[in-house]
């Protein structure tokens, strides 16, 4: 069983990428579970016809977490991808990080991975919230491979470097490794160069460049992944290709994150090279 975590800055396209990867991996005949670790609880929406499923924490609030059954917390979506949403409290109250911990404990207690004979688990994790709860998928017993979604924009790159810091720590304690960076292209200035430069500095590589394509929004408006809504499109093939790359990837590393000063220098250098060119 593979446990793959997708981390990245909020709004960078993690859920879009995760749900398309889940759909593409499931196309290959593998049993996939996608776990959304974001209080918004909309990671799997495009796998379930555009409707948000009940999150584990919303069910826990109603029934008590110890009383939840597997059938309640897992919803079967497109291509038979099993969908789980952690959920969380309302903004500004409680502790969403503790919620993630609690949900992971619940899934373990229910033995969902073995019960459902899961081949690939995809964790879609909010990456710019840096408390310990959101790092749970990085800890022992959960994800062993991490992909960081970024664009060429500064804040997305900054978040990627930050996540690399956590990975550096957890990687030294356990088996979790960085599989690479996935660039969700925004057509920013010197985007490819900036993402490649950061990946190299981290001691990793760019796993894929995902081009920007309006078909993604069109499918999302129908509540579908691109793999489902536009299966013959070039974009669907991009996701299939990324899925294949991830499943066959053998290059993992414990990243070497940059200090804030080094990070600034890297961006300045890339920008200067772009201007000179």
């Amino acid at each position: 069983m593979r446990h793959i975590a997708i981390y990245g800055k909020g709004g960078i396209g993690k859920s879009t990428l995760s749900s398309n990867l889940s759909a593409a991996i499931a196309e290959q005949g593998l049993t996939v579970m996608q776990i959304g670790c974001d209080p918004k609880a909309d990671s799997t929406k495009n796998l379930t016809g555009g409707r948000k499923i009940a999150s584990v924490l919303s069910l826990a609030e109603r029934y008590g977490i110890a009383k939840l059954e597997l059938e309640q917390v897992v919803t079967r979506g497109f291509n038979d991808v099993y969908c789980v949403e952690a959920g969380g409290p309302e903004p500004g109250i409680g502790c969403a990080g503790r919620g993630v911990i609690s949900v992971m404990d619940c899934l373990k207690e229910l033995d969902v991975f073995d019960e459902l004979k899961i081949d690939v688990v995809l964790y879609d994790v909010l990456g710019d919230v840096v408390c310990g709860g959101f790092a749970v998928p990085l800890r022992a017993g959960y994800a062993d491979q991490v992909y960081e979604v970024t664009s060429g924009e500064m804040m997305a790159l900054y978040a990627a470097n930050n996540i690399a810091r956590a990975l550096n720590r957890f990687g030294q304690r356990g088996k979790v490794r960085l599989g690479g960076l996935i660039c969700n292209q925004r057509n920013a200035f010197m985007e490819r160069e900036a993402v490649e430069a950061l990946a190299a500095s981290l001691g990793s590589r760019v796993t894929a460049f995902v081009p920007r394509d309006n078909v993604v929004q069109e499918c999302e408006m129908q509540g579908k992944t691109v793999v489902e809504g536009a299966p013959d499109s070039a974009q669907a093939n991009v996701y299939r290709s990324v899925a294949h790359t991830i499943l066959t990837n053998e290059a993992y590393s414990i990243p070497t994150p940059l200090t804030d000063d080094e990070f600034e220098e890297l961006l300045v250098r890339v920008k200067a090279e772009g201007l000179a060119a």
Binding site: L57, E61, I93, G99
Partner: peptide, 10 residues
């Protein structure tokens, strides 16, 4: 309870 920690006890 853990529930209150997650959702707040207000």
């Amino acid at each position: 309870s853990e529930h209150d920690v997650i959702f707040g006890g207000e």
